[in-house]
Amino acid sequence: MELDRIEKLLEKYLEATTTVPEEEILRDYFSNEDIPVHLRAYAPMFQYFSKAKEERFTKQLELKRKKRYMQWISIAAVAVLVFGIYFGNAYRDQKEQEKAEYAYKETKRALSLLAANFERGTEKVAYLKEFEATKEKIYNKN
């Protein structure tokens, strides 16, 4: 009689038309030791469901935000990078300007040296002109 009912419930169970209390009856039935041979294949299934429900989440819950640290670290890293690029560029600009100034000074010095020597050259050429003028005078007289 009982077996008959269980078999009917199993049929309904496979079609997914049993109710939760009916399924409870099946779980109860298969938790017992004495199950007829032809139904024995069902036993592990229902036993497993009962066992599976006993599993617990045992990990200690942490509601503090660990992740935020990572966020702040990445923000700091980006800031450092931006500063580095900015000041690095400024530093490079400054260096370039110094170099340009140095080149300018050197060129100026070289040019003034050249100019001084030119001056000396022209002085000598002036003597030459004097000579020419005198020579002309002598020619003209004769």
Binding site: Y13, L14, E15, A16, T17, A41, Y42, P44, M45
Partner: peptide, 16 residues
């Protein structure tokens, strides 16, 4: 859901 559940139960039963 009924269809999926029925299929799942039958598969488990058959394999067992």
């Amino acid at each position: 859901i009924r269809v999926a559940l029925s299929r799942a139960r039958k598969t488990v039963r058959e394999k067992l």
